[in-house]
Amino acid sequence: MNDIALHILDIIQNSLAAGASVITLYINEDLLGFLVFSVEDNGKGMSEEMVQQVCDPFVTTRTTRKVGMGLPLLSMTTSQSGGTLSIKSKLGQGTTVRATFCNANVDRPPLGDVVKTIIILLVGNPQVRLIVHYGVGTYSFTYDTQEIQQVLGLKEVDYSVPELTAWVREYLTQEITKVREEGEKK
C-alpha cells in the first residue's frame, strides 16, 4: 500500500464483507499534528477474542485462503509513522477502526487520492449509505449519500453514470480544497 487512501479503501472492504449498510468515514488531515482516519460500520462485528487477534496475518475470516493482510499492513504503517491503531467491535453491532499517523514523521505515507477512493467505493457499493466527514483541524465538511439520494429522488444511486461521477469528483475536490484553505489560515 503506497498511500493512506488505499488503506482506507481496504479497511472499508472489511466493513462491506461484514455486511454493513451504513459506513461512516472520518478523515482529519491535522488533528494536533496527527493525520487521523476512522471507519465505523454497523456490520456483524467481532468477538473480543477476534479483535485481539485481528492484526495477526494468520487470522482471517476469509475462506479462500488462510492469511489476511489488510489490518496487519495498516498496523505496521501506523506504528512506523509514530501513530496508533485501535479497533473496537461488538458482535452484532459493528466495528470501528481508528488509525493515526504522525504528520512530522518522515515515514508517514502520503495521504494519496482520497477522492478517487471515495468514488470507487460509491460506484462499487450503491446499496450502502456512506457518510464522509472530512476535516483539517476544526474545519470540516460532510458528504452523505442519503442526502444525494434525496436530491435525486432515488432509492439507489448508480455512481457509475459519468455525469454523476464527474460531479462528485469536482464537488469533493472543491470542498476538500476549501477545508484545507480554512485549516491552513489558522
Partner: peptide, 12 residues
C-alpha cells in the same frame, strides 16, 4: 444535481 436529475434517473 437537481438540474441533472431526470437525465441521471433515465441513465441509471
Amino acid at each position: 444535481l437537481k438540474a441533472l436529475r431526470e437525465k441521471l434517473q433515465s441513465d441509471m
